[in-house]
Amino acid sequence: MNNIQYPIKGACQCGGVTYELLEPPLMVIACHCIECQKLSTSAFSITAMVKTDTVIFKGEMKDWSRLADSGNVSAAKFCVTCGNRIYHYDPKDPEKLKLKPTNLSDTRIINPTAHLWVSEKQDWFQIPEGVKTFEYQT
């Protein structure tokens, strides 16, 4: 990511939860599963995989979780006031977070290098050429 200055600040819609991303994400993915379509109210959800110790959060968040099709727990943190989703995480892998990067002040990092669950992708969405795709989650 050229010319991106870290840390990048982020906040939920109401500003009750703020955070700083201290370094670039490990990767950015677009997930097309039905659950991510529900979450994003769009064709897919964007996730920036980051190391837990590279993000500093402030503000009150609430937990939510569900059992994923994979059998893993998909857990999330969101603002208690506006409900804006901040990140997802796997309780079995506490060293990584699945940050929802659309609430960053500099969104240039949002350039997915992989698309997951394309088996559930909306037919009208065209994935750019050269981007890795996976029928399901890897």
Rank of each mutant, 00 (worst) to 15 (best):
N2M: 07
N2P: 04
N3F: 00
I4A: 02
I8L: 08
K9M: 10
K9A: 11
K9G: 03
A11M: 10
A11Q: 14
C12A: 08
C14F: 04
G15E: 04
T18G: 00
T18P: 00
L22V: 03
L22A: 15
E23A: 15
L26M: 04
M27Q: 12
M27I: 09
V28M: 05
V28F: 04
I29Y: 07
A30P: 01
C31K: 03
C33N: 09
I34P: 00
C36D: 08
K38S: 13
K38V: 14
L39G: 12
T41N: 15
T41I: 15
T41A: 15
S42K: 11
A43R: 05
A43H: 13
A43M: 12
F44E: 02
S45Y: 05
I46C: 09
I46F: 15
A48Q: 01
T52H: 14
D53V: 00
F57N: 06
E60D: 12
K62P: 00
D63N: 14
S65L: 12
S65K: 14
L67F: 01
S70E: 09
S74Q: 09
S74K: 06
S74I: 03
A75E: 09
K77A: 04
F78D: 03
C79K: 01
C79P: 00
C79L: 05
C79T: 02
T81R: 10
C82T: 14
I86N: 03
I86Q: 07
H88Q: 12
Y89A: 06
K92A: 09
P94F: 06
E95I: 04
E95K: 10
K96I: 07
K98S: 08
T102E: 10
D106T: 01
D106W: 02
R108E: 04
P112C: 05
T113P: 00
H115T: 11
S119K: 11
Q122N: 06
D123V: 03
W124G: 03
W124P: 01
I127C: 05
G130A: 07
G130M: 10
V131Y: 11
T133C: 15
F134N: 02
E135R: 09
